[in-house]
Design a protein around this nucleic acid. Structure first.
Lengths: 350, 350
DNA sequence: CTGTTAGCGCATTCAC
DNA sequence: GTGAATGCGCTAACAG
């Protein structure tokens, strides 16, 4: 019923082995033979059986990409860039590789589950994007998984994520979240702001912590007290930004600036400020993080830190495919760039 | 080296078949035996070999999701919703299924390539999202592929895409783009607009055509001439919206409204209008399509048609898993909902 | 409920 | 350069 490699071999009057060689192109085959085989493939409309191929070769053409939220352009952009680099020649049978995008939803359990699933599929490579959950047990479990994946020949790359233990052999492209956070707050301080609210991401996340630390570093460097009441945690979405802003305003109506964990949260903050009758940046300045595409279209345009998501993803993809040199020590830090735009200004009365 | 099912069987002192049955849970196994097997699995840290399993069972746990652009939330939202529904019990070995998200970039060739790749992997199901390319040769090629996939036991669902030929057995959840387009333009006409520019998506796309037809339907219904100079085609991105708006304004400075192919394009249009010194909606009204999350945060908030992307994706996912009844005739039309917001108003001088 | 027996379709040794 | 033989690890009948 379903046409197999043997059928092709019969039709081309060669052995199955030869067909396999032609298809994988990793072996010398006479041009005329190849012609004949290719024609048979075409005539029979033959499609290679991936699982069988993977079983025999003990490796597959699947590349796993773990993301926290595929609906968030932050991850979508990276995932797209990774995928664009994993194709091309080099893989089995035609060189096409398939990206398996796994949505963890930020759940540690699902992250582990997906890693196991990818291990099960004998994935050629796995790229983990976004911040990690800060929990010793989970970190250990992930490290163990990564080690096993590595031992099984799966290349592991962390993109926008802090390095894993060295013995995991995972390459890390890390965003300088701390530095970016510091720059943003320093920008605000430079404008004269002193009473700034901070909307942090979910707790127990490296990204959340690093950005917040950068903010606090800047405060400390300028002798500004870090009032705990000025920090609120929430998810990385618009709604959290909205609610957190209302809460911050309730606690301290005299706030002159709001520092958001990322651009999406910042958008929610802007909405809350507008709904509270406050003007941006005249009454309150707002900053985001990431510089997602929509940030420039906010009104006023959002001051933020641009992260080269597409570049980082592309690089991670190439490293995963062994097409780019691994950075020294297996770790590269990627810095963001401060984008000063209309959402920040001199505080009222300054 | 790598531990196999046979190792587990040996350790648990049962036959390989029994281990397989425990793992797949589709067969009655004595509780005590199951216990023993599970313990052995744990002790040996055994991980099922996906390809071997897929080969033997002639089906895999992979579900393909084709999207035009994974960095676009329009697709990200649908992909996330689909993925959230394909997990859970029912699949092989624990019921976890892996979503293979394929980024076609809108390219017909890549679409076909990915379908072949998924066919090669013996995917359990394939969901195609977004509009189709309107090209007879390509449409035929896709239909042929879908038919083959269906014959091989792969369930095919179209989500936000027009139906495929009936003999493909593909279930279609189609967005009523035409109706939504009509509503938007009728809303503008109702406000008094007569000179409206239209920024269409790429040519040869069903989505583009249907939305445009809806617009023209509304014009015709109100006896408004459809001036070809008032329509510009471009990609579905912000930049295209920006440039198209500049061009429309150049052609006809007296435009009172801009109808954009989708929200992203509308955002670009808004930026162009602002840069041209025009106020929204006082000077020019703007409408989008889709109601992506950021649309409500535009200033003024965007009037648009809300498409239930998450619901549609979830439903497509369930149908793909055979967990939801197929709509009558295999086709369901999903309507959008007009969201009137601040970006539209009475035209100047009215 | 459990063990035995055959392959699933292909990649890869070896020979020639 | 090409063919023949072997096994990758697992599932699915079929017995019992």
């Amino acid at each position: 019923m379903t046409v197999t490699l043997a059928d092709v071999a019969a039709r081309a009057q060669v052995s199955p082995a030869t067909v396999s060689r032609v298809l994988n192109g990793n072996y010398p085959v006479a041009a005329s033979t190849r012609e004949r085989v290719l024609r048979a493939v075409d005539e029979l409309d033959y499609v290679l059986n991936g699982p069988a191929s993977a079983l025999a070769a003990a490796t597959s053409d699947l590349v796993g990409i773990l993301v926290n939220d595929i609906a968030d352009p932050f991850f979508g952009i990276m995932a797209g860039a990774i995928q664009s680099e994993i194709g091309g020649p080099g893989g089995r049978a035609g060189g096409e590789r398939l990206a398996v995008v796994c949505n963890t939803g930020g759940s540690p359990e699902r992250e582990l589950t997906y890693l196991t699933l990818l291990q099960r599929q004998r994935a050629a490579a796995v790229v983990l994007t976004g911040g990690a959950v800060e929990n010793t047990a989970h970190a250990t479990a992930v490290a163990t998984k990564l080690r096993k994946l590595g031992e099984a020949g799966t290349r592991v790359v962390l993109c926008g994520r802090p390095p894993a233990p060295a013995d995991t052999d995972a390459v890390a492209l890390t965003f300088d979240n701390r530095g970016g956070g510091r720059e943003l707050t320093e920008h605000l301080i430079g404008l004269g702001h002193r009473r700034m609210g901070y909307i942090a991401g979910p707790e127990e996340r490296t990204t959340t912590r690093h950005r917040l630390e950068g903010h606090r570093d800047a405060l400390a460097a300028h002798g500004i007290a870090d009032d705990p009441a000025r920090t609120v945690h929430g998810r990385y979405d618009r709604r959290a930004g909205y609610e957190a802003t209302i809460e911050l305003l309730r606690r301290e109506p005299g706030l002159t600036a709001v520092v958001a964990a990322n651009d999406t949260v910042a958008l929610g903050a802007c909405a809350a400020l507008r709904d509270s009758g406050l003007r941006i940046p005249d009454d309150v300045s707002v900053v985001g993080f990431d510089d997602l595409p929509f940030s420039i279209d906010a009104v006023p345009a959002l001051t933020t830190v641009r992260l080269p998501l597409a570049d980082a993803g592309a690089r991670a993809g190439r490293i995963a495919m062994g097409r780019e040199e691994v950075p020294p020590g297996g770790i590269a830090t990627i810095r963001g760039e401060l984008m000063v735009r209309g959402s920040t200004g001199v505080p009222k009365g300054a």
